[in-house]
């Protein structure tokens, strides 16, 4: 039962979605399945929170390596959740002044807004910005012209790197109009439009065929990996 019911739900929802794409009479069924999916996606946030608690509480309780980070994660999670759900420091909205919780949880100046503005925002931006440092270090240490393919990749990288800035047009502005195609900004466009598009289309078609065959296996219950391990 533990495996049969999820298999039936998967198969039914999948078949309904496929049918709804091809047959107008079943369009509403597909919409219904999509709404159920959205409801489940919202519930998944609760499951995700529960899972986060379980994993990190276990790590803290077992005093595993790095358990201190888990304490920080749990504290950050708990504080954000309490502050956000309780709408701490939020004023009632002008529309419903009689209801204490009617204000927006994102109200400027509220503790939740403060957490977002001064903790979440700079931390995520910093994490992303640090990529530039690691990419530069990797470019120096790993990007070697070892063979023909690597040389082609290097040449393309140089053209794109220059073409995506004002340096590219400045470097080749002296070229006559008859050789306009060789100007770096035009070469960049050609690489993106021709080589990149052709390669990506081939990959996308391959992936689509793979997804179609895998989906069919999932719908027919042949592939049950999405149900996780264990016997039902």
């Amino acid at each position: 039962m533990k495996r049969t019911i999820p298999l039936l739900i998967t198969g039914l929802a999948g078949i309904v979605l496929v049918l709804s794409y091809f047959f107008p009479f079943s369009e509403g069924w597909g919409e219904e399945a999509a709404i159920w999916f959205d409801v489940l996606a919202s519930v998944a946030f609760v499951l995700g929170g529960g899972n986060l608690l379980k994993i990190h509480l276990q790590k803290v309780s077992d005093r595993r390596a790095g358990w201190g980070y888990s304490v920080i994660t749990l504290l950050a999670f708990a504080i954000t959740l309490v502050v956000g759900l309780s709408k701490w420091g939020v004023h009632p909205s002008e529309q419903f002044p009689a209801y204490a919780w009617s204000g927006s949880y994102r109200e400027i100046g509220s503790p939740f807004w403060w957490l977002y503005e001064y903790a979440f925002k700079p931390l995520t931006a910093t994490m992303f910005a640090m990529l530039a440092f690691y990419v530069a270090s990797a470019a120096f240490r790993a990007f070697r012209a070892k063979n023909t393919e690597a040389i082609l990749l290097l040449g393309t990288a140089f053209i794109i790197l220059l073409g995506r800035t004002a340096a590219g047009p400045a470097l080749t502005s002296w070229l006559p109009d008859s050789l306009a195609g060789l100007k770096i900004e035009n070469l960049t466009v050609t690489i993106m439009k021709v080589a990149n598009t052709a390669g990506n289309r081939a990959i996308m078609i391959g992936i689509a065929l793979g997804i179609a065959s895998t989906s069919l296996k999932v719908l027919l219950g042949v592939d049950r990996s999405h149900l996780g391990g264990g016997e039902g």
Partner: peptide, 18 residues
Amino acid sequence: LVAHLLMILLIIAGNVVY
């Protein structure tokens, strides 16, 4: 612009070493 130029210089320097 400057970061891209630096990246190109770093790749060239890395290949000179190689």
